[in-house]
Nucleic acid binder design. Sequence first.
RNA 1: GGUCGGUUAACCGAGUGGCUAGGUAGCGGUCUGCAAAACCGUUUACGGCGGUUCGAAUCCGCCACCGACCUCCA
Length: 489
Amino acid sequence: MKNNLVIYNSLSRKKEPFNPLHPPFVGLYVCGPTVYSDAHLGHARPAIVFDLLFRYLTHLDYKVRYVRNITDVGHLENDADEGEDKIEKKARLEHLEPMEVVQKYLNNYLKNMEQLNILHPSIEPRASGHIIEQQQLIKTILEKGYAYEINGSVYFDVLKYNKQYNYGKLSGRVLEDLQTSTRSLEGQDEKQNSFDFALWKKATPEHLMRWPSPWSEGFPGWHLECSVMSTKYLGETFDIHGGGMDLQFPHHECEIAQSTAAMGKESVRYWMHNNMITINGQKMARSLGNFITLDQLFSGEHTMLQQSYSPMTIRFFILQAHYRSTVDFSNEALQAAEKGLQKLMKASETLSKLKPSLTSTVDIATLKKKCYEAMDDDLNSSVLLSILFEGVKYINSVNDGSERLTSGDLKSLTDLFSTFVFDILGLKDENSGKENVKLTDDLMKIIINLRQDAKNRKEWALSDHIREELKKAGITLKDLKDGAEWEVE
RNA sequence: GGUCGGUUAACCGAGUGGCUAGGUAGCGGUCUGCAAAACCGUUUACGGCGGUUCGAAUCCGCCACCGACCUCCA
């Protein structure tokens, strides 16, 4: 199995040829959402980026097992109000059970993902379903001597780990720098060093989410679930781990430390990080309160939105930028994306109606080659789209008669669009269904009006003929006192 | 403060040591009863200052500004 795919590995900070460990199988793990509020535009980005990767690898005939976790345990929040669990905080506010909150927002997230035409991962494991495995990993790390227990909590000993391994290799941190620069936060008295992180945390009396363990009734640390669930389903070593750039430190750094401490080796071969979506140049995040939820985008109900934007417009908007660049939100940019998407969709419809010629005046084989080159170059969907728009130009030109395509080339171009626009980029024509309903409605109005004119002129034969023909087409006309109703059988 | 990244035309956004990215918007034209669509042509680019080079927006240095991470976060 061969491919020309090159991906940027955050670990080496270089583009590297992608060679899976056990071809034709590929293991892909991506950090999913913490489900304690509605999904926002920021959540759409990694979902779309790694959906693109999943789709492309699948297109290249790899057998991909794609694991995307659901964080439903909620993790410690270092707010002024001493480490309150996010999910519980929300639960108390809304008088719901923590798991009820989880279910509500998980449902919403999954609904949004479907709207964005994001394929379901192969496995969507939940942190709460892997408490035992997480405890096992803690035990192993304790046995290896890279963690210590204090007052029922267990912390990872970063200093000791760093003597043998390199803590900070992924994010470019140097431990000595961290020692001086890490802010001193309250409630960290237990830790030997400020940069140590929790593997197990003893629950305070008001903490609702808790599980029994050898150390205390409590809950697992922030970073544990990913180490556990990735290796459980993909093996001790697996191909790709993805997530947002903001997770690089400390989350992914800690994952590396945990896995390495437990197994003596690293799990991940290629680290991939998508960049952020900005709004007025600033990161869009729940914590900053400047986020727009996907439901709001789709409905247009937000003070910053001039109109609603369809899921495919959002998808197209995100795909227009390369995943490692920031992408800046604005109404203007989304409206441009909406128009661009419409142009692409319209062209692909036109394509299906083109008539073949005996000769071709444009080079489809080269176009196809360039599409693969764009995707192979670290999933450059931005360049891919620019090439597909060359194809759009060809299509419209052929339609206008200024260019020609043989039936063979026509088929190639149709395959190309089907493959790249729909299968790989995962775009779909949202208007076809809606338009048809509206179109039928409009057509029926025209027919009914014409028939009314005929009736007004007492041309009953014509009027009856129209009604009979419609009946044959499965449409029943019902004449009312004024006007007419119609219905489909 | 530390680490890392960015600054591209009206807006979004690729890319590259010499060759039109693309989308949206604008302008001119073709087509058209009109309009729309489509097609053709087209305008203001590579933050600033130096350096390397035959040639830099692209490499190097300095400066300015912006951002991310360092704390849950996509």
